[in-house]
């Protein structure tokens, strides 16, 4: 079986890369393109740590063939910040202590980012549903949900919004 040259559009940049037909998008991102933000945990669709956007929709990159990603727009967690400037969502995760080991974080961010694009001020139930496919084994979900809810909607009574560097204004 031979490698094939494909072009992927990743974080708005075209990337030429040689892949095997049985390479997943996750393997190509991490092993060929050095975009190691997306994580492999289960490799079988259960955990969500490999979540990326394909044409603005969150999908599992461990269950997507790299070949199937040609002709689509891929966005990974590396595409959220502009340079050293974190996105509001990323900053809110830091401010609210929504990151512990950080392994689930890239997937959480991508699922949450897709939600906030559609609905900047979602209620708790909507956030829970949007993040239901992402498993976190250390932070628990309360802080993550708070971080998403307060990204575009900082709360006076929330101490984390107050101490936060960006969200307090």
């Amino acid at each position: 079986m031979e490698k094939i040259l494909i072009t992927l559009n990743i974080n708005d940049k075209p990337c030429e890369v040689m892949v095997y037909p049985n390479d997943t998008l996750l393997e190509v991102l991490r092993d060929e393109l050095d975009l190691t933000g997306s994580k492999e945990s289960c490799g079988e669709g259960v955990c969500g740590s490999c979540t990326v956007h394909m044409d603005n929709k969150p999908v599992r990159s461990c269950l997507t063939l790299a070949m199937e990603a040609t002709g689509t727009k891929i966005k990974t967690v590396e595409g959220l910040a502009s340079g050293d400037d974190l996105s509001d969502l990323q900053q809110s995760f830091i401010d609210h202590g929504a990151v512990q080991c950080g392994f689930c974080t890239p997937g959480m961010l991508m699922s949450a980012d897709a939600l906030l694009k559609d609905n900047p001020r979602p209620d708790e139930k909507t956030i829970r549903k949007a993040l239901a496919g992402n498993i976190c084994r250390c932070t628990g979900y309360a802080k993550i949900i708070e971080a998403v809810a307060h990204t575009d909607n900082p709360q006076d009574q929330c101490p984390d919004c107050k101490t936060g560097s960006k969200t307090k204004e």
């Binding site: 969500g48 394909m54 599992r60």
Partner: peptide, 10 residues
């Protein structure tokens, strides 16, 4: 079915 980010779009 499963979860939004798992199979609703794919």
């Amino acid at each position: 079915v499963g979860a939004i980010t798992l199979q609703h779009y794919t």
